[in-house]
Write a protein that binds this DNA or RNA. Sequence first.
DNA 1: TAATGTTTTTGTCCTAAATCAAAAAAATCA
DNA 2: TGATTTTTTTGATTTAGGACAAAAACATTA
Lengths: 193, 193
Amino acid sequence: MTAPIQIPNLIAVMRKAWPISDRSLAKIIDLLTPHDFAKRQALVSEGSTDGQAYFIETGMTRSYWVVYGEEITTSFSTEGTLVFSMDEMYYGTPSEEYVEAVEPVKAWSISIDELRQLITSDMDLCNWWCIIHQNEYRRIHRSHKERLTLPAQERYREFARQFPDVCRRARLTDIASYLGITPATLSRIRSIK
Amino acid sequence: MTAPIQIPNLIAVMRKAWPISDRSLAKIIDLLTPHDFAKRQALVSEGSTDGQAYFIETGMTRSYWVVYGEEITTSFSTEGTLVFSMDEMYYGTPSEEYVEAVEPVKAWSISIDELRQLITSDMDLCNWWCIIHQNEYRRIHRSHKERLTLPAQERYREFARQFPDVCRRARLTDIASYLGITPATLSRIRSIK
DNA sequence: TAATGTTTTTGTCCTAAATCAAAAAAATCA
DNA sequence: TGATTTTTTTGATTTAGGACAAAAACATTA
């Protein structure tokens, strides 16, 4: 079962981060395999070491840890994002962070080994990779700041303001765990006004 | 006033992250200027747009935000670390995060513009840069997790375990703000056992 | 469309950590 | 070295958000 590949979409998103040459881009495109995931299906699950990274074409995923049986959402990824396990990518260890589809997802996979190989040898792709990191770093840095300075209610407001789309599409429970509050509290926050 | 440059130290630290060739390394070394900072002196202060990055040779710095008049420490940097403003480096905007010496510091500066230029054009340095980011990203990701899952006391213990050296050298107040708790609470935590 | 499972809402009570305040200890400096 | 400032400790009180529990709303599937 293959999704119709709309490579142009992907290219636009990648080039927004860094002006990658056609030649460099082709190196990645050539290695992509299309995938479909049903809602709730895992892209990266416990013990999975198949080492794939995924470009999301449609749908949304969430990445999460499981700590003492509790799921903690660390990020939501929508159209145009690259999702992969940091553990696998950087340290070659099995992923402690899992990823599942929150909606039906169409994505392209690429092997992490191949991706790493490309990034370390191609100037354009290396730079592109740096940018992706910068953005992720910034997101997490900011969310860190908000957690330290804002009470639950304003953290939610800020989240809703920054990611209105995700806020609409994600489950209350997942948003709550992302913000570090209980579903009950988030529900009360939402009900006020 | 110039510190005696002990480049070998710096080289070792940089090469630990990525096997940089002599040629690539020289490009950076050539651009370094030695600096001394007194305790409490600012490396990056409000409104500073001189756009310098600093390699710490000796001493320790802390990076922090000021939110509603409160200082929030975001990281401590010791020997071998590169300190710079994300805002200046990535977005060319004045830094919202400030850096001060917590101990007397010897450091080398390099202009952020020049550094950026090197990183985007030299394969080795680009890769090295990626690694630095990966490590920072990981630190922040982990600290994020701990804040969500651990109570104040265990967060402190984890911090003390991961950064025993920093824990000894930094002020209680700064550690408290890094962990997102009040100095009073941290003092109580420390006094237990 | 009934039946079952999942998510969200609402209620009550409770606790970890904040706030405020002031004393004690440590560091800095003249 | 004593005087002054800064940091840490300790105490009393308050509070935001957690824990637990059960009902209501919503989805999913047969």
